[in-house]
Write a protein that binds this DNA or RNA. Structure first.
Lengths: 333, 333
DNA sequence: CGACGTGTCGAAAACGTTATCGACAACGAT
DNA sequence: ATCGTTGTCGATAACGTTTTCGACACGTCG
């Protein structure tokens, strides 16, 4: 009489000769069960290797002690964040559940709402949304957004100083003597992409270099979406001598495209990225990039959401500093 | 009458003037509902932004279309694997749920059993266990183990050729003229750690170099656990001129320890790692290491578990090749 | 005109757990 | 003796779904 291998609380109850209710009390050590009974039940639990089903438990009671990380895809930025979150969770007693649906290309928008409705209220007590495009936290559970679509407004937020980082990257190229500097943008629906472009423009403006619209291309923070604009940029009649890509994945692809076109990096074209994911050091030459403190961002986001879950008020927004990491993909003109 | 923000199937039913059962049928488009009714329900669903709760759904029905990745901790190896899995999942229509409890130091053993009982049967249709220590897949759901505690036996498995990789690493050091080569081991309960030590021994044997037990230390694949043995190794009166660490995290810590002790890498001591996680290229100098095809391992593990879930038979074990990546942390004696 | 299929729907049970509340016994105080 | 108190336990109702099955209203066929 056990179709599935699962051992339920009912099995334990039967085997221990008590009711399901009593077993439940023992597990959550609620008041009102005799020490001997408790001992016996514990014994049976160990014997049968019973472990309560998160699903059933969370369906019934609101608290689950699980924090959800909702992410469109496990790419380098998300996974770096995950590492930071994972480090920070150890002290808290919470568990982590990173969720990613198999998204089709077209419904990459609004996924955070769907995931949230699917998991919130049941299964998770709070959520960290990574690069969400829609805000509208419908109040069901506490939510912290990392790198959200519209800067610090709406839900609590952790991000980094995108403008300053982008400015530093562009100034670095300017200081190397570059004047035709291409910009390969990020996801247009993300605030960070907008801010990085802003930093780029500011730096050019400060250096007295006019912005050539022809050198502005829009990517999408993903390698495949960076491919075409990178090609366009590097095939221009009056080719830019440097490209600032809005994130590392785009920058890495840009370097690949350059090689395909017979261009050497950094001799023929300099490339700068943004994020400083570990992969950026693996390239040949290693990528010059803007470092975001991704681990810290994850850790802070976790602390934030835990505080909110436990009813402690928090400052709504946290912005961490960025810094330029000069490696081998840039060179003086 | 909505204490939580959650909109349930009941709300939809009421709002559409039909029964819950009908709504359920519409959602899962079962046969037996009039087109007009279906249209009306769909409208209400869109209106209210309803999304069915995974928890409740999976509690009732066996299938969830979710694959679980069970991991003790999100460290570089797991997250690289996750990327590979994530890439492979897109074609399949499954969703991913990476789960990691906040494990205390002491109960790092047997976690896979507990996680499995907690999630299996409900919530996930199949699971990928990353570096599990205990086998015993109690038949509840299909399970694939990556880098398991006891090589290819028991549950289906994906791993890489640890012996050949370790031999290549050690031979590389031997070829550079090193004869006193330390070995900083991995988690003793993992087959991969045993095999990497075996490869080390084989290479030394083939080169006619006796194995000095004093140069064999046991770590645990984690930076903190590598700290002490690395110190011991590098503080030996007759210090080894090279260290082969059983994974990159240990190797990276070994380089840090060397620096603390005033030793230069690779001038005073060469260091080789294992895994080739992206972080290994970030170090100064960049780490020479054995490359495992981690992304491919993840992708293959996913395909394997999906096949098993859908009832297609699979070869039980898959072993992928390794290769040496020579970077800057090794030098001729 | 009765029998029977067909299409459409809802009532109700089930999944595994937790929470509430009443039942019951034992016991000390009045 | 009676009454309340305390300690222990179990029935039972939820939680939000899916699934089974029967009810009902039509047509259609003999």
């Amino acid at each position: 009489m056990r179709p599935t291998g699962r051992v339920t609380i009912g099995d334990v109850a039967r085997s221990a000769g008590v009711s399901v209710a009593t077993v439940s009390k023992v597990i959550n050590d609620r008041y009102g069960v005799a020490p001997e009974t408790s001992a016996r039940v514990h014994e049976v639990i160990a014997d049968l290797g019973y472990e309560s089903s998160i699903v059933a438990r969370s369906l019934r009671s609101r608290r689950t002690n699980v924090i959800g990380i909702l992410v469109a895809e496990f790419e380098p930025f998300s996974t770096e964040l995950l590492k930071g979150i994972s480090e920070a969770v150890e002290e808290t007693g919470y568990e982590l559940l990173a969720y990613s649906g198999g998204l089709r290309r077209d419904d990459r928008i609004g996924w955070e709402q769907r995931y949230l409705s699917r998991l919130a209220g049941t299964l998770i007590d709070g959520a960290i949304l990574v690069t969400p495009t829609v805000v509208a936290p419908d109040g069901s559970i506490p939510v912290v957004a990392v790198d959200p679509h519209r800067g610090p407004s709406g839900p609590p937020t952790v991000d980094s100083d995108n403008v300053a980082g982008a400015r530093a990257a562009t100034e670095h190229l300017v200081a190397l003597g570059h004047r035709r500097i291409g910009f390969l943008g990020g996801r247009p629906d993300l605030e960070s992409a907008r801010l990085r472009e802003q930093g780029y423009r500011e730096a050019l403006g400060a250096a007295g270099i006019p912005v050539d619209p022809d050198l502005l291309r829009v990517g999408g923070y993903r390698a495949d979406l960076a491919d075409l604009p990178a090609h366009e940029l590097l095939s221009l009649p009056d080719r830019p001598t440097a490209v600032f890509a809005a994130n590392d994945l785009s920058a890495i692809r840009t370097m690949e495209v350059a090689r395909e076109l017979g261009l050497r990096v950094p001799d023929d074209v300099s490339v700068v990225g943004f994020d400083n994911v570990p992969e950026s050091a693996l390239t040949d030459p290693p990528l010059t990039t803007v470092s975001q403190p991704i681990h810290r961002m994850g850790a802070e986001a976790l602390r934030m959401v835990v505080d909110l879950v436990e009813g402690r008020p928090r400052d709504a927004h946290l912005r961490l500093p960025t810094s330029l990491v000069v490696r081998g993909s840039t060179r003086a003109l």
